[in-house]
Each structure stands twice: as structure tokens, then as C-alpha cells.
Simulated scan of single mutants.
Amino acid sequence: MDNKTFSLQTDLALYCRTGLYEPQTSIQEHTFHYRRLVYNVIKDTLRRAFPMTRKLIGKRRWKKMVMHFFEYHKCQTPQVWKLPQEFSDYYQQVNFPFKKKFSFLVTLLQYEWLEIEVFMMEDLPIDEFSIEKKSQEDRIIPNPEIKILSTEYPVHLKNGKEITEEDKGQYFVSVHRDFYTKQIQFNDLSYPFVEIILKANEGCFSRKDFIELLAKYDSDREKIMKLYQDFEQFALQNTIFLGYQI
């Protein structure tokens, strides 16, 4: 790309964002349409990405957020579907006047973005597995297409308008792509089970390994074994675990 072409692209991008300093183009009478078209692409992409955020803060605040992002943020990604991540990051950097009113909005934006990120992520390699367990020592094959979000507010459990400071605590939600349907699933989890999922994705572990891990949280062996057995069944039914190593 020569310097002249790069300079024109830079000038056109600035014009599209701000509406100022209209550059000279080959069809000048069409130049003003570029800004409207680009804005509509960004507006529609963000609208689809953040339905919960839009509903929570209202149309007026949402419109101001999007326009602020459009005018002042220099987008880094050439892929439109990744714009919501930049929007989420941008919100954290800008001192919007309503930030104090919606203390958990950073988390809600991250939560909604994760759904897109996991849905669009590349297929990851998975070892062959069987859904039948032959022995208690069979190693678990986990679903690697998963993200864990740690949050102070239950954005995955309650309507945003019902969340208050009294709800503030420690929550964990898994966001994963179902192995068979490819749809996104969300699950509220306690930390011991989050640790099991993380360990499973670090390498192959057996039932015995996971029970030993849970022993850090409770000394009642019988209770621990029942907890793990229930979680394993839950994880298999929801394709957080896929099966057992062949």
C-alpha cells in the first residue's frame, strides 16, 4: 500500500468517525454516505451483541455510549464480530457519567461479549473419547471450548434492574459451546467445581484426582465422593465433560 492510499484511508476513517474534514474521493457526492453506512454497521453490531446492557441503561444512555465509541475510539480489529470486545474494553477506560449508577455494567458487558467469543471461537482439538466409563480410573476428556467468568454481581442469575449492592459477592459462571448442538450454555458454579474444570483442561485427570482436589474443601469423604459424582453427571449431561479417554 502506497503512502497516498494509506493517507486517504486514514482521512476517510477520521471523517467517518467525526464527520469533519471530508477527504477528496473519486466520487465526492457519495462520500458523505460512508459515515452513515459505517455507523449503521457498528450500531447494529453492538445492538445485537449487548441486548441486556441496552435494556438496563435505556435508549438515551445507550445511544450516547455508541456514538462516543464511534467518534473517539480507533478500532483495532478488521473483523466486525470482534467490535463488541473493543466496546467492552472502551467502557472501562471512559468515565461515563452514569458509571456509578450501574456499578456492575463492566461485568455485564464482559458477560455478553463472552457469549459471542465462545460461539465464534475456532474448533479446538479434542482427544477421542467414549461416553462409557470402563473403570473409576478412566481419565476425563473435557470440553475445551469454555470460558470462566469471575464476577462480583450475579449478572447471569438476575435481571439487571433487580441487582443491588446487597447482591455483591463472589460468583462464577461458565460459558461453553455445546459439543453437539454448538449452542452456548451458561452455568452458575461454586469455586471447587470451577477448579475441577480448569484442572481438567490443563491435562487428563481421573475421578480419584478430582476427589482429592475436593478434599481441600471438606473432610467428609463420603460427602465429597457424592459431590463429585453428582458434578460429573452434571458436567457430562451439559458437555462440560465429553466422556472418557479411549
Rank of each mutant, 00 (worst) to 15 (best):
Lys168Glu: 12
Val155Phe: 02
Asp220Gln: 10
Leu227Arg: 14
Asp167Cys: 10
Asn201Asp: 07
Asp230Asn: 12
Asp220Lys: 08
Val173Leu: 04
Lys199Phe: 05
Glu222Thr: 12
Ile196Tyr: 02
Cys204Val: 03
Val155Trp: 05
Val175Trp: 01
Asp178Glu: 11
Phe172Gly: 05
Met225Ser: 08
Ile224Trp: 00
Leu198Ala: 09
Asp178Pro: 01
Ile211Met: 04
Glu166Tyr: 07
His176Ala: 12
Asn201Glu: 07
Lys182Val: 02
Thr151Cys: 11
Glu195Leu: 12
Ile224Asp: 01
Lys208Thr: 12
Phe231Ser: 03
Leu227Met: 10
Arg177Gly: 05
Met225Glu: 15
Lys199Ser: 12
Tyr180Arg: 13
Thr181Tyr: 00
Phe193Asn: 03
Phe210Ile: 01
Phe231Asp: 02
Tyr217Val: 09
Glu166Ala: 09
Glu165Gln: 12
Glu202Asp: 13
His156Thr: 07
Leu157Gly: 05
Gln229Pro: 00
Ser190Thr: 14
Lys168Gly: 02
Tyr228His: 04
Arg221Val: 14
Ser150His: 14
Lys199Gln: 13
Phe231Asn: 05
Val175Gln: 07
Tyr180Val: 12
Val194Asp: 06
His156Phe: 14
Phe231Glu: 02
Phe179Met: 07
Lys208His: 09
Leu227Glu: 13
Ile184Tyr: 09
Tyr217Trp: 12
Gln183Glu: 15
Cys204Gly: 15
Ser190Arg: 13
Glu202Ser: 12
His156Tyr: 10
Glu166Lys: 13
Ile197Phe: 03
Arg207Gly: 00
Val173Trp: 04
Lys158Thr: 02
Glu232Pro: 00
Asp220Ala: 04
Phe179His: 15
Ile197Cys: 09
Gln170Cys: 06
Ile197Gln: 06
Glu202Ala: 11
His156Ala: 14
Leu213Trp: 04
Leu198His: 09
Asp209Leu: 07
Lys182Ser: 13
Val173Gly: 03
Gly160Asn: 10
Leu227Val: 01
Gln183Ile: 03
Asp167Pro: 09
Tyr171Pro: 05
Glu222Leu: 03
Ile163Trp: 06
Tyr153Lys: 04
Arg207Thr: 11
Phe179Trp: 13
Asp209Ala: 08
His176Asn: 11
Gly169Ala: 15
Glu232Asp: 02
Phe210Glu: 02
Asn159Lys: 14
Tyr153Met: 08
Glu222Asn: 11
Phe205Leu: 11
Leu214Trp: 02
Asp178Trp: 08
Glu222Gly: 09
Ile224His: 00
